[in-house]
Design a binder for these strands. Structure first.
Length: 726
DNA sequence: CTGAGAATGATTTTT
DNA sequence: TCATTCTCAG
């Protein structure tokens, strides 16, 4: 077993070889975090009396868990199978499957993903005759998820106001519905597992005795419940080893609590936090920029990245006339990079929101540059795949009303809304699930029930893949999509589902589900917990397009950080939140630290958003990077903001209609000299630099709306405000 | 049940 | 702008 400890730097080595006890590792971007985590496990196994069964390592994504397992397999002589390595959800699922009885769950409980959960919430609201307009299903879903992630059941939520009281009532009803139907949502996996451990002492002691070392990756992303789960599981004799980077905490909006890091330090009396600050990824200028930027955040544990490699190139900055102009420029730069020998899959274009990819895709398509967009629907989330899975779920778990309703009339078989409502009423009256009800008095649903019954019988003795194949064919899904114009892709996905089942059958089953679980339930669990790839075509040499969020954990030779405009990035919505601006800055930090050698920053004066032209100011983040690190490819905006002359109050002209041939830039036919023009840069004594975004009124009543970026968007009376052209 | 047209609303996202 | 979701006529 070769750990290559000699290749570790002193801090990495210190982290890897820490004696028993709790530890907090502050691991900067590109500092070899995964390596430390895996080498630590290997070292513990080699040095101590620890056996693989004593290790529990938890990550957030399946990808990270796989990566860890792969590296360990390469490093170790022992079979890593005995370890518990997985995501929070995967490990909780594993525990709940093993103790489903103690946890109060049916053997083949099904897992609701967010889509399923929303459907369940909608159905609940309808069955309780709730006013969907006053109580949007999404809000309730968010409420329930949030409370569960705080570790609260309906009974434990303080009733602060009328809305909360109502939500709590619905939360309780939702949990009851889930119980009846034998399903659990994502947050429930964690909460149920937590409750099981806290309630059941023998079980808790069993696991505590077993897991001597608990290791957590991306600790800054844990929510309150996850931290409590860890604390419960890591008993008095165990060591909790947490690795994280508070500067890369970008998921507060979905419940992550960076505060867990400081809490951990205090709760476990961590004497010395180990900082991994040597970066093995980026050139010096990139790190200097990132360090300077993140220094603007007040709430930090503190850390400064450095590199032993050289300063490298300056960061290139481009100011575009418009979003289309920005895209054209990127295409040119990418072509140049390609000519110089950079592979396309080593170049990433990052943006704040998915909507920004459209213009870019348009340009790339015209330029015939192959690209791959991350985001969007994943394999197991596609409608046709979910339909097929619903049939399978109903076979495995007839109480699953969600699954029943999804496919009872898909493909259509004459069971309309009427019949379904009748069934739902009868089910409610009889206190039974829909499938049982339909089985007892079939009515219009007779063909459907007969189909499911027949499928169940015919599946006996078949392999998993054969079962899936049979269901896809006999359900009528294949026929249905064959007759559809755009059905080819969907049919391909259904075939792919059969392949996935075959692959799962042979390889993954034992690993994921464990011992005595039936293959079908194991596969359905796999589908729920691992939504699969976003898009096929991985491994082809294509440009990588993604949000800055999805880029976390990745690295590229060259990175474009686009749309650096106030309102877009930092996003205007984020400014409403108290901690929003700091989280946006951390996101920028993540974006910058993705680049190995070359980093481009760009922004546009004009951008199409929601069907409207927006005039944004350059992002504050550009000001927060030392100018000496930047190389402006266009004149630096600050230099152009010299006052020319005072405007005279009175006239303005609407910006002339933009000509698409000029990339949406003002066509330059402006109004009279001294007139206000929409899109005009101005400056104000108090608010500073701004852009005119709208105007109204005439003469002395004339008012203009000016976007002052971080100072906000304001209407100003032209006669009063002394605006200067800038 | 289907398709057309209206209404709606639009950061970020893994499990 | 544009994709999704809803409503209503046929």
């Amino acid at each position: 077993m070769s750990l290559h400890l000699e290749h570790l730097n002193p801090e990495q080595l210190a982290a890897v070889t820490l004696p028993e006890g709790h530890a907090l590792i502050l691991a900067g971007a590109g500092s070899g975090k995964t390596r430390v985590l895996t080498t630590r496990i290997a070292w513990l196994l080699r040095e101590g009396s620890l056996s693989p069964a004593g290790v529990l390592a938890v990550t957030f994504t399946n990808k990270a868990a796989r990566e860890m397992l792969t590296r360990l397999t390469a490093m170790l002589a022992v079979n890593p199978r005995g370890m518990w390595i997985g995501t929070f959800h995967g490990l909780c699922n594993r525990m709940l499957r093993a103790h489903h009885q103690e946890a109060g769950l049916p053997r083949s409980f099904q897992i609701l993903d967010s889509q399923d959960q929303l459907a369940a919430v909608k159905r609940l609201l309808r069955s309780m005759n709730a006013d969907e307009d006053r109580f949007p299903p999404r809000d309730l879903q968010y409420f329930i998820m949030g409370k569960k992630e705080e570790g609260l059941r309906a009974g434990g939520v303080p009733l602060t106001d009328e809305t909360t009281r109502r939500n709590v009532e619905l939360y309780a009803a939702y949990d009851e519905q889930c119980r009846r139907e034998g399903v659990v949502d994502f947050a429930e996996l964690l909460l149920r597992s937590y409750e099981l451990l806290s309630r059941n002492e023998p079980l808790r002691e069993h696991y505590r005795a077993r897991f001597r070392h608990v290791l957590v990756d991306e600790f800054q992303d844990t929510n309150r419940l996850q931290y409590r789960w860890l604390k419960l599981l890591a008993g008095p004799g165990a060591s909790l080893f947490a690795v994280g980077d508070d500067d890369q905490s970008i998921y507060a909006f979905r419940g992550a609590n960076v505060g867990n890091m400081a809490d951990f330090e205090r709760d476990y009396r961590i004497a010395k936090v180990i900082r991994l600050e040597q970066n093995y990824r980026s050139h010096g200028n990139i790190l200097d920029a990132a360090n300077a930027l993140i220094a603007h955040n007040a709430k930090r544990l503190g850390k400064n990245l450095w590199t032993a490699s050289g300063a490298g190139e300056p960061l290139r900055v481009f100011e575009a006339q418009s979003d289309a102009d920005e895209a054209r420029w990127m295409v040119e730069e990418i072509r140049a990079l390609k000519r110089e020998g950079t592979r396309l899959d080593q170049i990433a274009v990052l943006y704040r929101s998915n909507a920004q990819s459209r213009v870019l895709e348009h340009s790339l398509f015209s330029a015939s540059l192959p690209y791959r967009v991350y985001g969007g629907l994943r394999f197991f989330e596609r409608a046709e795949v979910k339909h097929a899975l619903a049939y399978l779920r109903l076979m495995a778990s007839p109480a699953d009303d969600n699954a029943f309703l999804r496919v009872v009339n898909f493909p259509t078989r004459g069971i309309g809304a009427r019949s379904v409502e009748g069934l739902q009423d009868a089910a409610k009256a009889g206190g039974r699930n829909l499938y049982e009800t339909a089985l007892a008095s079939p009515g219009k649903a007779a063909p459907f029930v007969a189909l499911i019954e027949a499928l169940r019988e015919e599946c006996a003795g078949l392999t998993l893949a054969e079962q899936v194949e049979l269901v896809v064919a006999r359900s009528g899904l294949l026929t249905h999509y064959k007759s559809e114009r755009e059905g080819a892709d969907r049919i391909e996905n259904l075939n792919e589902l059969v392949n996935a089942a075959a692959a799962f059958d042979s390889e993954e089953r034992a690993a994921e589900a464990g011992e005595d679980m039936d293959p079908l339930t194991a596969f359905l669990t796999h589908a729920a917990l691992e939504a699969g790839e976003h898009q096929a075509g991985e491994g082809q040499d294509a440009l990588q397009l993604m949000t800055m969020h999805s880029a976390k954990g990745l690295e590229f030779d060259a990175v474009f950080v686009s749309g650096l405009e106030e309102g877009l990035f930092p996003h205007e919505q984020s400014l409403l939140d108290r901690d929003g601006p700091e989280e946006e800055r951390r996101l920028m930090y993540v974006a910058l630290t993705r680049a190995r050698q070359r980093l481009y920053l760009s922004f546009a004066q004009t951008r199409m958003l929601h069907g409207q032209t927006r005039y944004n100011l350059p992002s504050r983040f550009l000001d927060e990077i030392p100018q000496g690190l930047l190389k402006w490819l266009t004149p630096r905006f600050a230099e152009k903001r010299k006052p020319v002359s005072n405007f005279t109050a009175g006239s303005f002209t609407r910006a002339p209609k933009r000509d698409p041939r000029f990339g949406g830039a003002p066509a330059g036919t402006g109004g009279a000299p001294g007139a206000y023009r929409i899109g005009q840069n101005v400056s104000h004594a108090k608010f500073g630099a701004g852009v005119i975004v709208d105007a109204e009124g005439q003469g002395t009543d004339a008012r203009v709306q000016v976007n002052f970026g971080r100072q906000g968007v304001k209407w100003l009376a032209v006669a009063v405000a002394k605006l200067q052209a800038a």
